[in-house]
Write a protein that binds this DNA or RNA. Structure first.
Length: 216
DNA sequence: CCAGACGTTGTT
DNA sequence: GTCTGG
DNA sequence: CCAGACGTTGTT
DNA sequence: GTCTGG
């Protein structure tokens, strides 16, 4: 499970990595928790990409409250009634710079940070759902898969992280389902770094996520 | 995932 | 302990 | 505790 | 992942 990630200021590298217009407005959000509104990347009708702000926590049709689903199993996302329509028609990417998993038991339990060794941006495979009312944000959730050898030291699941080619496939509305399922695999552990994280870097700031966003 | 708040009964 | 919000 | 299902609308 | 039933 992944219930906390980080989106640090790495512009314009991130805009370039995601093939976004250099003028795109994009907020950093060093600590992202469920229910926070986060930037997501999706494909426009003309094939170009844009950024929108969705609430992390997928709500079903008509639902307007609660946490919602923050993760969906990639192995079953095209089958489960709660997810399949979004998986088929509403795929998106959730940009990040790191994600966190907790390991240990009791008092020794602590967060670990995972990121690319070269600090490249992470692209989580994600799906989204339209809002129950026009004034509400759409909601999204990220897909999970079995962990690679590095993450497996800490946890039994990890986010699906896509490389640039896989991102293009994931955002292609016409991509065949077997191909979509094929890109949902664990990232190469040789390219990833794991480090003990501080409690502070996983604590959402008081006052809500809006106060931490820095525009640049 | 963590952090924080928590009900009622009824008084060391 | 359990629930809720972030 | 584990095992199993997982909403609703409405029909490719 | 989460909830419910047994």
């Amino acid at each position: 499970m992944c219930a906390r990630y980080s989106l640090r200021p790495v512009m314009p590298r991130l805009l370039e990595w995601f093939d976004l217009d250099p003028e795109t407005e994009f907020e950093a959000q060093p600590v992202v928790a469920p229910t926070n509104v986060v930037p997501v990347v999706l494909a426009r009708a003309d094939g170009t990409r844009g950024v929108r702000r969705f609430r992390w926590g997928l709500l079903g049709p008509g639902e307007s409250g609660g946490t919602g689903h923050i993760n969906a199993r990639s192995e079953t996302v095209f089958e489960k009634p709660s997810f399949r329509e979004s998986a088929q028609r509403r795929r998106c990417l959730m940009p990040a710079t790191a994600f966190f998993e907790w390991g240990g038991e009791g008092k020794a339990r602590r967060p670990y940070r995972f990121e690319w060794s070269d600090r490249a941006p992470l692209a989580f495979a994600a799906i989204w759902s339209p809002p129950a009312a026009v004034e509400l944000p759409a909601t999204c959730c990220l897909l999970t898969t079995d962990p690679n050898a590095l993450v497996a030291r800490i946890h039994d699941r990890m986010p699906v992280i896509l490389d640039r080619d896989a991102c293009a496939i994931w955002l292609d509305p016409d991509a065949p389902r077997p191909l979509l399922e094929a890109v949902c695999r664990a990232a190469d552990p040789e390219r990833m770094a794991m480090a003990e994280a501080t409690r502070e870097e996983t604590l959402p700031p008081r006052g809500g996520p809006d106060v931490q966003g820095s525009l640049f």
